[in-house]
Nucleic acid binder design. Sequence first.
DNA 1: CCTCCCAATGGAAACGTTTCCACTAACTGG
DNA 2: CCAGTTAGTGGAAACGTTTCCATTGGGAGG
Lengths: 367, 367
Amino acid sequence: MVQSATIKDVAQRAGCGVATVSRVLNQTGPASAKMREKVMVAVKELDFHFSEVGRSLQSSTTRTIGCVVPSIENPVYADAVQGAQEVCLDAGYQMLLICTNYNAEMETHAIRTLISKQVDGIILTVGDVNNSEGLDLLRSRKVPYSLLYNTAPEGQISWAVDDHAAAAKVASVFHDNKHKHTGFLGLDFLSSDRARQRFEGFAEGCASHNMTPPALLEVDDDSDDLTPRLEAFLKQHPNITGIFASNDYRALATIRSARQLSIDVPRDLSIIGFDGIKVGQMIDPTLATIATEPRALGAGASKTILSMIDGSTPPELPSMDQTFSFRDGGSLTPLVAESEDDGKVAAFPSSNDQTHRQVKIQQERPQ
Amino acid sequence: MVQSATIKDVAQRAGCGVATVSRVLNQTGPASAKMREKVMVAVKELDFHFSEVGRSLQSSTTRTIGCVVPSIENPVYADAVQGAQEVCLDAGYQMLLICTNYNAEMETHAIRTLISKQVDGIILTVGDVNNSEGLDLLRSRKVPYSLLYNTAPEGQISWAVDDHAAAAKVASVFHDNKHKHTGFLGLDFLSSDRARQRFEGFAEGCASHNMTPPALLEVDDDSDDLTPRLEAFLKQHPNITGIFASNDYRALATIRSARQLSIDVPRDLSIIGFDGIKVGQMIDPTLATIATEPRALGAGASKTILSMIDGSTPPELPSMDQTFSFRDGGSLTPLVAESEDDGKVAAFPSSNDQTHRQVKIQQERPQ
DNA sequence: CCTCCCAATGGAAACGTTTCCACTAACTGG
DNA sequence: CCAGTTAGTGGAAACGTTTCCATTGGGAGG
């Protein structure tokens, strides 16, 4: 790392004071044409660029915003971060990224670090909105921040999918398709805000449509053993005809496990996912899901931060029902009258009925 | 953003000079037990934390490393970035992330920005290794950098999959499974280093196994029209029994298009992808692919940078064949003897398969 | 008791900016 | 021709650190 020319070098070469160089380059304050010229020449010759560090110290502003998310291995966060990053960049800000791996301690540490680095604002997804050491820190330091993918406590800004409403929508979709007995497949249900919201929304939606309360299948991180869990679950709740998976990956895994159990999706079991990852549309059957727009959320969070920094009017949060939309797909099918009476037959077809399946594929192709 | 306490405030409160505070807190130089105590108390009371900006200016080191990648919407990069970020964090460094959206201008701008911010090193994926303004900048400024996912020119360090060797491996796998006539499906083939390497490696692999040279199907970004393209391609090359797609998404899309054309994968057509994204194993058939370890590559790049910064011995680059491995999957099947003679039958089974014929007719009608 | 040494400490410079202020010189209007 | 602007300029302070250097005081050794 060879040390760059400083403003002093430029001043010396141009034969003027540093103040003049600063004025010329920042176009702040007056300067004669002659001086301007000399400065510009010196800058070119030395290939001078300002040191942002010096600037930051003086202006106590870093043109950097921090971003704390659990993991960008999850495409939802990856897309959100990308969206946020782009907006920052457009506004001349850079983004410092820290992934916490869903670890609360990391989360606090990350926020502390970002504060030390004096970022101008922070976009973050916390584990628990109501009990976050990091958030307290931000508030006491009055650092601008915007939540992302957290359900906002009253009066706070969060760019997030309305999990509750979206899950209720899933219930209503099941209802429209004549499904009455459903299950909810979620991970780490108790510790995650998001999963809980989705379950509650789904349960309430089911209730309001006079469906039976959804059965809960809680799986752990490693989905390798999903197949036996699913089998036991369906045996225990034989009349279930539809499953709402708390995210698309788990929906995909469920479809696969179902297939291993010779349960045809969607004929014997309908699946609806959550998130709308793009592979959902590249597979067969395509995945019915709640489509969300992570990029837009990330971008929104950035805009909020930027408006807090420059004091401009903040962007409007999308209304509840604009944060998601239901996307139909081949993994969901209306329940036909005959199966409606007896879910058990539907869930465990003894047949190796190829014809049915072929016909199904045929029907689907014209889209 | 309320301004934090500075070291001066601490000194004043502790009744000593700033130098003492610095020495106590950094444990550099001597200090009496009494002073240490007083300083620590003051720090607690004021909730003092060092300003990294001040530190950076003085030490001309920022404990920040930059990362420039095309887009983290691509999970390969997302995972690599995450891996890199974790290693940095462990070493007490933070990561500044900029996505270029595959835009060369952005790339240069990003690097310039990072240099201005005086990052201690940069991890980057460039569009063209041999002609990158940004790389020139880094070299002239002697900024430590490590390439990621670029095929390194001689003598340079790059953490990347050996595309050429991996593609050759695909050819050998096809050969082991008795496939002789293959196709390569790639995007933006001419402008991308990576795609070209994969094609060349594949072609050479085919040649060395006495297979016919692979036919090339070049698709554009929007894969919506893949189905007709694939159909035309297979009509033009009727004896193709295996397709190597230049990444897993395109492999998935190919499987889907094939299904729409009533071509069964893998019975009528085997598909091998590249990257090893995790959904590849969640679908049916599972995707045969070249599995790579983006996280490990990203982590390696970080370690390289860190070693350049502190002058320690750099980590060893993985040997060529450790950067990837072939992962078998349901989308690949050995070619059975009967079909071996006539690939056309395999690709367009017109035989006694009633279902397929019907479908075929249906398929053709709209056109 | 006088040196000498060393631990403990504080002052001040330096890092690269921006900006306030003071100063000069060249105008303008009377 | 003089007073009063005003454009153009440079010096220096400030931002928050670290670190060099000088200073102090006390203890050990003579």
